[in-house]
Design a protein around this nucleic acid. Structure first.
Lengths: 210, 210
DNA sequence: GGATGAGGTGAACATAAGTTCACCTCTGAC
DNA sequence: GTCAGAGGTGAACTTATGTTCACCTCATCC
């Protein structure tokens, strides 16, 4: 969305909306001729005139002579950060997440500042079911972002593989031996019989109301 | 990040990394000549040969004859959704958020599926301080996404303007009269003396560990 | 009625950028 | 030693795309 404080004509808003939409869906910026085709203006110089006016109004920028270089301007544009695309699963079977991208049920796209991580192919997201972590304010339906390969530390929330299923628990050590704690008194601690398989450490959470 | 299952040469990985980086920062895709400049290959046909091989490996796609049409392919590419850029504030003074974009302290970029909203210029994000909403699993440091102009309903979490500050509370009605409830017994309910100013309804939350 | 701005037509031109082909060196495998 | 692949040079060509200019209609304002 663009600031509504600068007055614009109907055609200008149409152009800005097209650019906004193209950008938000990750497509390359359109050429002048593509803008014309979209809006029913079969004439590249009419489009060029509109672009020039929007540039003068400070609502977009172009690089002279460079193809597909139209960029919308907004006050928050300089505050934007890199965006990562994280595969979202209901559960994670064994194996590195990279080999499981094919089985993702969705994708979480978010900027690196908001999730506090650097992008790596070992990051995945997990949708939580149940209330076993409610003591740490993680509730049913939340999506948690997990960093695979990160060494868990005492107190970290981790995704662990138990009985072929991913589960979220707090990672604790007692006399050097790890165990998992549900953050809900309804559920007992889990002391692993076999070796504990930690799939990753929780780094962020995304919740939507519904 | 791209699937590591398809073997690639060093140069191919360099090209893919450049494309990945350009895409994640919201820049238009590079031309072949720009790729060459970046990697120190002053020769467009060498780049074109690499692109052709990557296309054959299914790792990227181009539209024949269309400028800047290189797009990375990945299994989660079809799962991606539109991304919105939401201004982030520490607090919101009075007035529609659009007029306040200049004062944003940051920007939350996230896909529409993850926050469950359609993009509008009335969406803003607020960083929470304090523990007044801990009963609803909203904790200090969380970032909440607020939809301005949405009519609050009984039980909604809202951003309200109190004493010139934004605060997050549960919106309740008693005999038709609204009041605000902190979700922490440490804090009393707020029955507004003057008219209650609701800045918006909470629609999503983003939390990062630190 | 004239001036101005919005919105457009048409055409031509310059440059950016994709495509193609012949040719080269180096390295590793057989 | 040969072959194939990786990685590249050089040049030329075609097409996409941005730029520019003259010109037009229509609506609104003074």
């Amino acid at each position: 969305m663009f600031t509504s404080s600068t007055p614009t004509t109907r055609r200008q808003r149409e152009i800005l909306q097209l650019l906004e939409h193209r950008q938000s869906t990750g497509e390359p910026p359109p050429s002048y001729r593509e803008i014309g085709e979209h809006l029913g203006i079969p004439n590249v110089s009419a489009v060029a005139k509109h672009i020039a006016v929007l540039r003068r109004k400070g609502l977009l920028e172009t690089t002279e002579g460079k193809t597909r270089s139209i960029q919308i301007q907004s006050p928050i544009q300089p505050l934007r950060r890199r965006i990562v695309h994280i595969p979202l699963f209901g559960s994670i079977p064994a194996g590195p997440p990279t080999e499981r991208e094919q089985d993702a049920e969705g994708c979480v796209s978010v900027d690196v500042e908001s999730v506090g991580i650097r992008p790596t192919s070992r990051t995945f997201a997990l949708r939580i079911t149940g209330d076993s972590m409610i003591g740490k304010h993680i509730i049913d339906g939340d999506v948690v972002v997990i960093e695979h390969g990160k060494e868990p530390r005492q107190g970290d929330v981790v995704a662990a593989l138990i009985d072929g299923q991913s589960t979220l628990k707090t990672f604790l050590l007692q006399r050097g031996r790890p165990f998992l704690r549900a953050e809900n008194p309804k559920y007992p601690d889990l002391i692993p019989g076999a070796e504990l398989v930690i799939q990753g450490v929780m780094v962020a959470l995304i919740r939507k109301r519904n």
